[in-house]
Design a protein around this nucleic acid. Structure first.
Length: 480
RNA sequence: GCAGGUGUAGUUCAAUGGUAGAACAUCAGCCUUCCAAGCUGACCACGUGGGUUCGAUUCCCAUCACCUGCUCCA
């Protein structure tokens, strides 16, 4: 192997080849905003399609929705985002360090063996506590703080023409709530019995204090979420099921098993609503980072919406004649993070026999933005080669390129991860065959043009092992 | 938001108080015809705004943007 991949090189390749550009580029950019280019949108779309295929089309358990980004602000009160999706920030006037007030107190308490939870305290109480206990700045020792300011991570905007608080609404910070508020609609209109899931792909917005690492953490991002509703008590079995399902999906995307790991949240770091959470992490060039969060949310979300909307969102189970609030298992994946992981995993710099290095993106064929490149050996063969490209472009995304030397064109295709190059040469006129070059081995195979379509059939398929359905506790209804 | 750093072709780097040069890349032509070949040519840059100066890409100030770190990450 060569030197480890750095983010710099990955970003450079992404820009250079048209996967991802800096947002608002000609105006000097906008921090941490990125635009997907021609190849990037293909790759991202394929990831999303494969996810949809695995979680919705091929699954008898799940259905899909596509909900509005703008929602009634009461949704975010119910979900807890208005009150707890914000942090009480406090600055030391002396050394200008910034802290979360509750953490500052928590650390001080731990150090002085004081047991005192301050979660949910109002600002005044936090400020009073800090002042009363003479908690000093851990960095410089000063006790001169600014007042607490709240930083809510939801983007705010106004609906309608007046900018008063009555018209203030939020851009959704997660796609999940659109699913929860539609639980009853979907359950009724599709006549679903539990267990079943509702999937959604869509943009979410969070005003992160510290975005960074290319497209890993941005303020606008795309989520692929499943909310899986099940009978209370069956949730641990379903949690395990989706855990394994998601892991299999990541490996099927081409992430090597050695670079993927589970990380269970410790009790302290668990969100207040969650019984258990596991992250699936990938070893990015900058270190391990969360790609997928799988959370057992119990009945928290539906319960909150029942409380706030005063609508009955409980489920009547005809099998047991019981009425209950479904429990929810939520596997939630970042599309942009999946994209970054796939790109990083595919990136390879290979040293050839002649000492030259070759940059190759070793995408799984099902993910490759360009599936087949058709290249005439010489520009004199362009017309005949173009006919071959037309033949294939009916079924595949094909790039035709007749410029410059053939070797250079192969390398260009390697660098964007095209799995196969079809080359029309001077013999092709006589024998009506072309060569098919394999991206990874660089080996060529001579194939009759008439057999080309058949030769490619099945080579772009996507397969992943699906775990056995949980059988415990009557978890699965068969024969849907 | 704070601290530090950086701004010159698409990229990586030069030089200079008298408005910039190369390599690679890109494009075109010739040649070649299976793995980034060669030759010729073309295109393309001093982030923005002030100040000092006869003259600023160069010095000063401001601003903007980006990078790194910290706080944060449902």
């Amino acid at each position: 192997m060569n030197a480890p991949l750095t983010m710099d090189r990955l970003v450079a390749l992404a820009r250079n080849r048209g996967f991802v550009y800096p947002g608002s580029d000609i105006y000097g950019g906008l921090a941490n905003a990125w635009d997907y280019g021609p190849l990037g949108v293909e790759l991202k779309n394929r990831i999303k399609q494969l996810w949809w295929q695995a979680f919705v089309q091929r699954s008898r358990l799940n259905v899909g929705v596509d909900c509005a980004i703008l929602m009634n602000p009461r949704v975010w009160e119910a979900s807890g985002h208005v009150s707890s999706f914000s942090d009480p920030l406090i600055d030391c006037r002396e050394c200008r360090s910034r802290y979360r007030a509750d953490q500052l107190i928590g650390d001080w308490n731990a150090e002085h063996d004081v047991v005192q939870a301050v979660d949910g305290w109002p600002n005044e109480a936090l400020e009073a506590y800090i002042a009363g206990h003479e908690i000093a700045c851990p960095k410089c020792g000063a006790r001169d703080y600014t007042p607490i300011r709240h930083f809510n991570m939801m983007f705010r905007t106004y609906q309608g023409v007046t900018e008063d608080s009555a018209a203030e609404i939020y851009l959704r910070p997660e796609t999940a709530q659109g699913i929860f508020v539609n639980f009853r609609n979907v359950q009724r209109s599709t006549r679903r019995k539990l267990p079943f899931g509702i999937a959604q792909i869509g943009k979410s917005f969070r005003n992160e204090i510290t975005p960074g690492n290319f497209i890993f953490r941005t303020r606008e991002f795309e989520q692929m979420e499943l909310e899986f509703f099940c009978q209370p008590g069956t949730n641990p079995a379903w949690f395990d099921y989706w855990r394994e399902f998601c892991y299999n999906f990541l490996l099927a995307l081409g992430l090597p098993a050695r670079d993927v790991r589970f990380r269970d949240h410790t009790p302290e770091e668990l969100s207040f609503y969650s019984r258990a959470t596991t992250d699936l992490e990938y070893l990015f060039p900058f270190g391990w980072g969360e790609v997928w969060g799988i959370a057992d949310r119990t009945d928290y979300d539906l319960g909150r919406h029942i409380e706030h909307s005063r609508q009955d969102l409980s489920y009547f189970d005809p099998a047991t004649n019981e009425k209950y609030i479904p429990y929810v298992v939520e596997p939630s994946l970042g599309a942009d993070r999946a994209f970054l992981a796939v790109l990083a995993a595919a990136y390879d710099e290979e040293t050839l026999a002649d000492g030259e290095t070759r940059t190759v993106l070793r995408f799984r064929p099902a993910l490759a933005p360009v599936q087949i490149a058709v290249l005439p050996l010489s520009a004199k063969l362009s017309d005949e080669a173009a006919a071959v490209a037309d033949l294939l472009s009916h079924d595949y995304s094909v790039e035709f390129d007749d410029r410059q030397a053939i070797g250079r064109r192969y390398r260009r295709q390697d660098e964007i991860g095209t799995p196969w190059c079809v080359t029309y040469d001077f013999d092709s006129r006589e024998d009506h065959c072309v060569t098919v070059r394999d991206r990874d081995t660089m080996q060529q195979e001579r194939i009759p043009i008439a057999d080309l379509v058949a030769w490619f059939t099945g080579r772009f398929d996507f397969d992943m092992p699906v775990p056995a359905l949980p059988t415990a506790a009557g978890a699965v209804e068969d024969g849907e």
